[in-house]
Amino acid sequence: MSSYPDLVAYHSIAITLGQAGHMKELFDVIDIMRVLLKKKFKTGPFEKWGPRLEPDLVVYNAILNACNQRKQWEWAFWVLQQLKDKDLKPLSIECD
Rank of each mutant, 00 (worst) to 15 (best):
T43H: 05
T16S: 10
F77R: 13
C67H: 14
H11C: 04
Y60I: 04
M33K: 04
Y10M: 06
I32Y: 07
Q72R: 10
A62D: 08
C67S: 12
D85K: 12
L57R: 12
F77S: 12
F27H: 01
L88E: 11
R52P: 00
W73C: 06
L17G: 04
L80I: 09
K84W: 02
F27G: 00
L26T: 07
Y4E: 07
N68G: 13
E54T: 10
P5S: 06
K48H: 14
S92Y: 02
K42E: 08
R34D: 01
M33E: 03
A20Q: 10
D85G: 13
H11V: 03
V58L: 09
Q82L: 10
K84Q: 14
W49H: 11
V29S: 01
D31F: 06
N61G: 14
L36D: 05
D85V: 07
I63H: 13
H11K: 06
F27W: 07
H22G: 00
C67G: 13
Q81D: 14
A62H: 08
K48D: 09
Q19V: 00
K24P: 00
I13E: 01
T43A: 03
L17Q: 08
D87S: 12
L91D: 14
W78P: 04
W73V: 08
K84F: 08
W78H: 14
R52T: 13
I13W: 01
P55F: 13
Y10N: 02
E74V: 11
E47Q: 12
K24Q: 06
Q81K: 14
W75S: 07
K71V: 10
R70Y: 14
P55L: 07
Q69P: 02
D85F: 00
I93L: 02
K48G: 04
L36R: 09
A14R: 06
Q72F: 15
L64T: 11
G21T: 03
F27L: 06
W75P: 00
G21P: 02
Q81L: 08
F46R: 12
G18S: 03
A66D: 08
L64R: 08
I63F: 12
G18W: 06
T43P: 00
L53S: 05
E74R: 13
D28K: 02
N65H: 12
T16M: 04
V29G: 01
R70E: 15
H11I: 05
Q82A: 07
D28S: 08
K89P: 00
P5R: 14
K24W: 04
G21Q: 03
K71Q: 14
L53N: 05
L17C: 04
F77A: 12
F77W: 15
D56P: 05
R70H: 11
